[in-house]
Design a protein around this nucleic acid. Structure first.
Lengths: 198, 198
DNA sequence: ACAGAAAGTGAACGATCGTGCTCTTTCTGG
DNA sequence: CCAGAAAGAGCACGATCGTTCACTTTCTGT
């Protein structure tokens, strides 16, 4: 049972990239089968249904996100350095790791935000854990620590700049977007770190 | 030829709200026909194809966006007051006008950003004109005027906060998101207005 | 009020959707 | 190396997709 796992991985990868472009629901099993070079019925040896495959895609994307964006930042000391590492890897995730298709998390979020079910729940949970972790880092940015409200507000802006970058570059074709996002984030760190306590 | 235009409007409205929830491609003609209370074939008396209907939806959404977000702000004097009016109406557009479905422009953007064709072009043009107009307002925010690069960077952040608000409230269920967005925008105006010239 | 146009229905089409079935090929543990 | 399991192909199914066409109902200009 070794070869099976390899193809299962290839299926998920192809499905994820197609879903990042066209959306999870818009990708048919025929599309995935063609992309991975299998027959439609062959897919059912790896997933019991289309829903199960979609769920596997969501899980794989979130796991990979943690692996690429959060995990390498953990090697940095808490505080500003770690926040900068997270942001830098987040940019890399959006602009390089998913350069052709765009960030699948943004696609999945807008697609699933009003569609109840396990995929939405999983996405919600993953994003929530990431958000909580980054908020903790923001709190450690200053002495005395930021209040939770201040840190949440800072995360709101950080996440906003990532979303803004995706739209600016992918829809508006703004080549300066990455620079704008980076500058906005650095300025956010500056004024957050040196702000007085409430 | 009076009744026809009315139903055509109802069709577009229903289709737009369905598309804001599930995406443009994911909405079938059967869905629209049911929602508006017509037969599938009846739709073809108002649109020659599904593509034409989708194009009409995009046009209607963008026109309504201009009507609700930009036009009322024109009554305010240029500068900070007008920018605040635009942002306030933009929030209203996202949070009230499309409360149940979420902003259709954000949905359409993530759906069409890597799907060439007339709908994408129309969306790109509409967003580009709006962006250029808001950038002009940012330039008028200070004396001497902001450079174009400074104004573009400010618009980038403004747009980012709107996108951040949508995700925070719709996916994360963050009730404070609207307050966060407003506070972030006011702070952006403050530091932009009193920044020194380059 | 009446004729012609517009609006809308219902059935049917070919294509594609997700899924189950049987059958063959390929792998892998003992 | 061989038997059993896993991986995959091919076909067929009912449902739904977008679209067309012939037909009926409803509106509207004169």
């Amino acid at each position: 049972m070794r070869k099976g796992e390899a193809t299962r991985g290839r299926i998920i990868d192809c499905a994820a990239r197609l879903a990042a472009v066209r959306g999870l629901t818009a990708v048919s099993l025929g599309d995935v089968a063609d992309a991975v070079g299998l027959s439609k019925s062959g897919l059912f040896k790896h997933f019991e249904s289309k829903d199960a495959m979609q769920m596997a895609v969501v899980e794989a994307v979130m796991e990979r996100f943690g692996e690429i964006v959060w995990k390498p930042a953990e090697t940095h000391p808490p505080g500003r350095g770690r926040l900068e590492a997270v942001f830098e890897h987040w940019l890399h995730w959006c602009e390089n790791e998913w350069a052709e298709s765009g960030c699948p998390i943004m696609q999945l979020t807008t697609e699933l935000d009003d569609q109840p079910g396990p995929p939405r729940e999983y996405l919600h949970m993953g994003l929530g854990m990431f958000r909580a972790a980054v908020i903790r880092e923001f709190q450690a940015l200053r002495d005395p620590p930021l209040t939770e409200a201040e840190a949440k507000a800072a995360y709101f802006q950080m996440r906003s700049f990532i979303l803004g970058l995706s739209e600016a570059r992918r829809m508006m074709g703004d080549g300066d977007a990455e620079r704008s996002a980076r500058a906005a984030f650095e300025a956010l760190l500056d004024r957050t770190a040196r702000s007085a306590a409430a």
